[in-house]
Design a binder for these strands. Structure first.
Lengths: 471, 471
DNA sequence: CAATTTGTATCTACACATTTT
DNA sequence: GAAAATGTGTAGATACAAATT
């Protein structure tokens, strides 16, 4: 019999004593999972300390440790020594960003579709590939990571983005997400801890959860992740890897300057972390000669660099290049075989053709032009926030807002007004509610007029609801 | 101080007492992993009982349990209550079967390339797809699991193979391996136990290892897995899922008859297992009207059915269909998004065209014809073993041999003679050395002459080395 | 800045089931 | 068919580290 009565005690999670049957840790974990998934325990809720639950249930408190451990591995909760244990954000919902169809009335400013219209140049490249009659040579099981000439084109493309490698250390994947999956599956194990920005790419958050990797958020400033914060987390957390988007981070649009990159690289090397560098935006700067050196170059092999082609060229052609350090070659090739057997030769060949005949650069330049135009449009509506910390030229913007309501409400409100945008909570690794943002995609509305109307609606909504921040 | 001296004791694994520093379980696990990976502990070796190691090191024996547990999750060892703990097969090597290039002199009878030459019909379909000018509609982010008309074609194709579903419960993947990855990643968690045949598809064994799933081998007879054995493993092992290739299993060529399928389905249902059914061969029987009902149909939704198109049509077009039960729809779609974002529309569209214009059936018929021809050739050389238990018409055969030498030696011997075949040890889930086999692929030699020469070399080698079994 | 709160890592204890002898 | 060998699953004990008061 426990000494105290907890009947009136305000335990946020109060498992029922009656229905409890051994194995205790398992039935408790199931109860906790059920309550979180059904939103009976909301995101951010502080759970009772392990010792209190144990007291209440008259169990050893490490048994509760075990309960929390199970749920932690499922990404449902997270704990900090000294602070307590909390329900993870998004644990009751799927934050994967996908292209759910919108009604025709609604303006897409949520997903980053990258001006996805099918270009004449791509159609032409497809024709050329077929005309060459060369495809039959590509249609076997050989060269699972890409044919030599395809890899050479990739190496050339990555070079202009500030990542230098060779064909032996390059592989082709079916898109950046696919490359991310193989990288994290091959280089890490379930339960491993990965450092990441406090706000990061939401599909990566979901992927980490799927692979049972534990994300450790690291604080940053307007120049990106703070090296001393990363070092701090390393000393207390036995971190194995780190995920970064150094150029125009998604969603914050922060580009890490050269000096900060070097400092971060030093910390990464010192702690033997494996960096996975995700690059979807450098190409937007490359045409103006503004590409910064990649972290991959700075790290000399202790990293994996992923360069997706879907945003710069065409989302339908699912191709991404990966450059990897010597030490990871075996693991990556093995992972590629296990996840894909091989990458589709057809898509790879079309992209190769586009790079070799120079049209890839033309398409990129065109998209860059549209992006600049749309950024100016954004600046007209939100002059206080454009180019505050982030990138001058970007597919999306990161707009601070003043609201404390649940994130779905705001998204839904705006959806009803006719625009789709995404709230910062989707991108939060852990509960972080000091400041809310909206990610505003500038590359997905069907045309400029629609985009302008969308921005107008957005501005009005924020003003009417007193949600605007002051610059 | 331990009481006994173990200096002369024959412990197969004897961690050094000196270098040992806490945390013990971790440094011990590292030592064990190192020795297994560097072949200092060979596959099949029986490790000392947990209690003995603990005695020797003067530690509590459950600490050793923990050591074994860590290595077990990595697939390095496996244990059976009462029997002991053993080093897994292939733990020191990668058994992933890939298309490593052979010298031109060597005849390929190892990999299953499926008569991979690029067919005119496929080239024509590609042209047609482009001519329709319809591609631009497919090149966005929408319909990540496949466009409705593509799914409809898949549903139609699976129907003739005995798997009935609809578009809402179908998804398109970049090949069967990709589909397997998503299925196991989405439906299971690291540490989960999956039942499988004692000999099964080696790339699946590797995938399971990558995903930290534990394979439980289940005994079978000439009609496939034994239902009572499956039931037995379920009662002692808390098994979560099961992987089966009911039609012409790879590598054993066993096709499970209808009655056995029903019995297995009953056991699967009773124990709430999730079945992942891999079908690469039914199409070879479908043309003759000999397709059996799929396990998917028998299980009414408690399963996932994967049908790869690479073997039947073209390996370069990386497409597989997956049909799934109602309960798994959410998890599978989520997994697809996380691993691939979406499947390449181009490949899917070409396959769709081939199914709709009927040429897929023509190609399949042609490959079936070649397969029958090559099986007869095999029967000429190995009459005692053809159609013993296995399938009459199959891309590969399963040839019993009489040797006790390490599997690499035999493969290398034959490679030196000019043929590549794979030894049964590659396909063994656990150490099982009662009877050895060779998997002889009949669909990968460049032409019939080469295949015949290969069979000739193989027969001679086996006879000269007295390795032939008697029928 | 010392005491307290709280989570984490590691090792120990024990009941139990299966296999072998 | 009982006893011994052996692995598995669950729960408890203890030392420790970070955050808070």
């Amino acid at each position: 019999m426990p000494v105290n009565s907890f009947d009136s005690y305000p335990l946020t999670w109060k498992p029922e004593k009656e229905g409890l049957k051994p194995p205790y840790y398992k039935s408790l974990a199931e109860d906790l999972e059920y309550k979180i998934r059904n939103n009976l325990l909301k995101a951010g809720t502080k759970l009772p300390p392990q010792r209190e639950i144990a007291d209440y249930l008259d169990l050893n408190y490490t048994t509760i440790t075990r309960v929390y451990e199970v749920c932690k591995k499922k990404g449902l909760i997270y704990g900090t020594t000294g602070k307590g244990t909390f329900v993870s954000p998004h644990s009751a919902e799927d934050i994967t960003i996908t292209a759910a169809r919108l009604s025709d009335m609604c303006i897409e400013m949520g997903a980053i579709n990258g001006f996805s219209e099918y270009s004449e140049l791509i159609e032409q490249a497809t024709q050329d590939v077929i005309k060459k009659g060369y495809l039959r040579n590509l249609y076997g099981y050989s060269h699972p990571a890409g044919h030599p000439h395809q890899l050479a084109a990739g190496v050339r493309w990555m070079e202009q983005l500030g990542a230098h490698t060779d064909c032996e250390h390059t592989a082709i994947f079916a898109g950046a997400q696919n490359a991310l999956t193989v990288a994290f599956l091959s280089l890490f194990s379930p339960g491993d801890k990965i450092a990441a920005d406090e706000y990061t790419y939401s599909n990566f958050i979901e992927l980490a959860r799927l692979l049972h990797l534990i994300l450790i958020p690291v604080k940053g400033d307007e120049k990106g992740m703070l090296p001393e914060e990363l070092q701090k987390q390393c000393t207390i957390n036995r971190i194995k890897g780190i995920y970064l988007i150094p150029t125009c981070a998604n969603p914050t649009t922060i580009t890490i300057p050269v000096k900060r990159r070097q400092e971060l690289a030093a910390v990464i090397q010192k702690n033997h972390l494996i960096l996975v560098e995700d690059d979807i935006s450098t190409w937007l700067l490359a045409a103006d000669g503004k590409a910064l050196p990649s972290m991959f170059d700075l790290l000399n092999g202790q990293s994996v660099y992923i360069c997706g082609m879907t945003k710069s060229l065409c989302p339908g052609l699912r191709i991404a290049y990966m450059a990897f350090g010597e030490d990871f070659e075996g693991a990556i090739r093995h992972g590629l075989l296990n996840v894909n057997i091989k990458t589709s030769s057809f898509d790879a060949e079309i992209i190769t053709e586009l790079i070799l005949n120079g049209n890839a650069y033309k398409i990129a330049a065109k998209k860059q032009h549209w992006t600049k135009r749309n950024c100016l449009l954004y600046a007209k509506y939100f002059p206080d926030f454009y180019n505050k910390n982030g990138n001058v030229i970007s597919y999306y913007q990161w707009l601070p807002i003043n609201v404390q309501r649940p994130f779905h409400e705001i998204e839904d409100d705006l959806l009803n007004q006719g625009v789709r945008v995404y709230h910062s909570d989707r991108f939060a690794v852990t509960g972080n509610t000091e400041q809310s943002f909206l990610r505003v995609s500038l590359c997905s509305a069907e045309n400029t007029k629609k985009l302008e109307r969308g921005l107008h609606i957005l501005k009005n909504y924020l003003e009417e609801n007193h949600c605007s921040c002051t610059g």
